[in-house]
């Protein structure tokens, strides 16, 4: 590990100022991803700004949303009673990620910032446009079994590895940030970005901006929800494909649906056309299958992830069945 300067931030304004001054400064929260990347030489910060003492560790009830502080740990979110009653989908998704030890350390803000697990990004001897812009994409013609089927570019086919983000995308979370130019709120749809020609940018944060909280607007999705993660082993594995499903069902009819997928794109992937399709439809496996086929429009696979073209819709169908209660366990 290379030498770096360590700063403990006591208030957010000074943290933001410090970060804005140094192009190579990084905020440190739970450290479950950043420290690994530093050990691998993938990220070489000149300065770590430890934000763990900032007052962002509360879950608060606001009039229109539940506000989750950026430093609340993943475990605390998943086990929180307000979350479990109002946003059970988020709880399910978080508990599908990583391991208990990691969830105890990882924070909400950090999870939003989680880097891809693409092996070419992690191995500094191999090409990766995300780590080293212009070096090429190692995965495009490499071992791309875990990679994107939606929204990728010739520059990058990596996926966002988070489970939490997928549920947040379905729940229309809003990310609050504080930066050198003041505070702003970013809808989660606009927070993560597609790789395009700048895969080095995972998100739309400006230099020095710090995540302070995530708002979860209240929804009617408290009952018919499910997060299904298909993976190579039962725990501590990233998704091959995952599906966050939130349904509002009345008398066997779907009044509203929210669908998002993980393991398929550079950002948590929302399936709005499939949502529209399901609106007003009866709960049935046939409708779920049709919705899943609609969801797959525009999908493109590479040499080793062809299976995702089938696994992704299957995952969505099964998650819809589980959410609506028509799957027999």
């Amino acid at each position: 590990m290379n030498q770096f300067q360590y700063n403990k931030a006591n208030e957010s304004l000074s943290a933001v100022k410090l970060a804005a001054k140094d192009p190579n400064a990084h905020f440190l929260a739970g450290g479950t991803n950043l420290i690994d990347l530093m050990k691998m030489g993938v990220v070489i910060p000149s300065k770590l700004i430890d934000i763990n003492h900032l007052p962002f560790s509360k879950i608060e009830k606001m009039p229109h949303a539940l506000r989750v502080g950026a430093l609340v740990t993943n475990s605390d979110v998943a086990e929180n009673d307000l979350i479990k009653s109002h946003f059970p989908l988020l709880s399910l998704a978080i508990n599908a990620g990583a391991s208990p030890q990691l969830r105890n350390m990882a924070t909400v803000g950090g999870n939003l910032m989680q880097r891809t697990r693409c092996p070419y990004f992690f191995d500094t001897t191999m090409p990766c446009n995300k780590r080293s812009p212009g070096s090429g994409c190692g995965a495009l013609e490499g071992i791309n079994r875990m990679h994107a089927i939606f929204g990728a570019s010739e520059q990058c086919i990596a996926v966002n590895p988070s489970d939490m983000n997928v549920a947040m995308r379905a729940l229309d979370a809003v990310v609050h940030v504080s930066g050198p130019k003041g505070e702003r709120a970013i809808p989660i749809a606009d927070f993560h970005r597609l790789p395009g020609n700048h895969p080095e940018l995972d998100n739309t944060l400006q230099k020095g901006e710090l995540i302070t909280a995530v708002d979860l607007p209240y929804t009617p999705f408290t009952k018919n929800v499910y997060y299904l993660k298909v993976r190579d082993r039962s725990s501590y594995a990233f998704a091959l494909t995952s599906a966050a499903v939130a349904l509002y069902i009345e008398n066997g009819t779907i009044k509203e649906a929210r669908l998002a997928m993980g393991g398929v794109a550079h950002k948590p992937w929302r399936l709005t056309i499939a949502e529209e399709f399901l609106k007003g439809k009866a709960v049935s496996e046939d409708h779920f299958k049709q919705a899943s086929q609609i969801a797959m429009q525009g999908a493109k696979a590479y040499q080793y992830n062809q299976f995702k073209l089938k696994l992704a819709p299957n995952t969505l169908v099964q998650s819809l069945k589980m959410a609506s209660g028509i799957a027999s366990s």
Partner: peptide, 25 residues
């Protein structure tokens, strides 16, 4: 254990990506 034959290097040489079974398996 998977090698990328273009580089001759393992792409999953760690405990996150090389999957030994977990308790739940």
């Amino acid at each position: 254990a998977i090698i990328d034959d273009r580089f001759g290097r393992y792409v999953n040489g760690n405990f996150a990506d090389y999957h030994v079974p977990v308790n739940a398996d």
